[in-house]
Design a binder for these strands. Sequence first.
DNA 1: CTGAAAGCGCTAACAA
DNA 2: TTGTTAGCGCTTTCAG
Lengths: 312, 312
Amino acid sequence: VSEATRQRIVKAAEELRYSPNVIARGLKKIRLNLLGVTFQYPDPTWITSDYYGTSILTGIIGGAHAAGYSTTLFHKPWRDATQSAAGFRGQGIDGFLVVTPLPESDMVSGLAALGIPLVVISAPADHHGAHSVVVDNAKGVRLVVEHLTGLGHRRIAHIMDNTHQYDTVERCDAFRDILAEMGIPLPPEYNPAIDYSGIKGFYECARRLLTLPEPPTAIFVTNDGIAIRVLEAARDMGVRVPQQVSVVGFDGNPNGETTDPPLTSVRQPLVEMGQEAARLLVSVIEEEPVVPRTHVFEPYLVTRQSTMPPPC
Amino acid sequence: VSEATRQRIVKAAEELRYSPNVIARGLKKIRLNLLGVTFQYPDPTWITSDYYGTSILTGIIGGAHAAGYSTTLFHKPWRDATQSAAGFRGQGIDGFLVVTPLPESDMVSGLAALGIPLVVISAPADHHGAHSVVVDNAKGVRLVVEHLTGLGHRRIAHIMDNTHQYDTVERCDAFRDILAEMGIPLPPEYNPAIDYSGIKGFYECARRLLTLPEPPTAIFVTNDGIAIRVLEAARDMGVRVPQQVSVVGFDGNPNGETTDPPLTSVRQPLVEMGQEAARLLVSVIEEEPVVPRTHVFEPYLVTRQSTMPPPC
DNA sequence: CTGAAAGCGCTAACAA
DNA sequence: TTGTTAGCGCTTTCAG
């Protein structure tokens, strides 16, 4: 095209307020510059309802935007691959970020089989040819246990939840392994799982632990959201933290800065993880030659005032 | 179509894992079942970065999902209507939720002029034919002032921010009006505006107020995010809340429950507002006969421990 | 009741 | 270098 006509066209386009129709372009199997965020949790508002979700989402939005992509929250109930996978194709979304898929689910393999560009967040994506972005849970748990044993604790409990997510399971497994490795006993009643469905579950769980004949001197909680509720439950029961029991969370939720006492926690770089996931997905969509792999992020311990040596 | 063939087709479709291509359908100017969320704040991650944004978004996602729509976070820099409006058309988005547009902006009028279905959140949408969803700021501020004067306060300061949003401006105006109406003086140094750009802005602002020769006995803060920082600043300065100074926020942020002391605040029903906005937008898109209007939500006071009578 | 054809706004391949 | 044309997958219209 000659420069003169080019100029004329550009000028005319401006005058007419022309803007290309992305849909028509999309029909030609060209990128729509749209990333989808999806997950299996039944409630579509889950992603904006806690610190984990909003942080991951913040990273995704930022990473997507930097690459010229918008982000769609695409929530569809998932039964199994044969019934559900097709509903993710031809939806005008260039690729999906699958957040915390469950181990027993065929969501990742099902979408991958359809050739949809995919990046998995907070779960491994072995053998499906997808990138995945995870935190080193074992390392994080080791930091917690070493911190607590360093303070002199030997009676350490672990509160997990019943979501079956990789993070939850890995943290629990790591906790058991590290305790075993250190020769510290773990009675079964020291390892309860909270049922999220009941609001009172937190209280029940904390109460059961703290009214044990031989209560733990420290509690490692699988995430900060629950840890903060445990702090409240302890206060309501008249149990002083950290004097009578130390509490450690996981996530690095800034709400833990202003609790009473401020919460010791393992920080995972959620925003960076979301950002990296979006970047990786864009690179897959744009077919840059990247070998799919698991990207592991390092957690670190933020020591605040909810931990101290056990009462003598 | 006869029932027999219908059955045959449905069966074949299932076997082939057929799923309609939404894009091709969209090209025919049919709904894509996609709502866009947009705002003018330059940072695309703003919406997931604070309580206001995530709550509104939670409502939107929920409302959209209930109506069979997905939600896209569509962030584009906005210069002015002639340059920017066209970029919102033909993007495969059925309509937009415009969150906290600024009073001086032509974003709402510009998009409305293109015939794009629109609902405005936290700003009036007068004369643009769009629905809008707002909280009754004047009512909320009146609750605060009546609560504080009821406790005996006469030296009341107001910390606002410099975002120029309707909520901020309306709360400040209402505060001045109600104080004037009650005959309570408001020295200019009792009404500072925080600059968000500096992290230290919060501290500076709180410090200036609390080191005044005649410091306020109560501070009304324009939102809970800042109010919580003011609580921290006061603690760091050795000023006791509420014994020496009472603090009230606005939003109903649950983080205020676990601060020390727990924060008194005006709750606005953000999730419900987002939900209603999504519902309204869907009704506009689907051309149900609804007369555009401003939907006002009622705030109410949540009294916690950050307020008490002033020191004598 | 069923089949064929046109067209949505764009891109890519081709012809002039 | 320019103009023309086919076709993406669907919906709608019109014939059969």
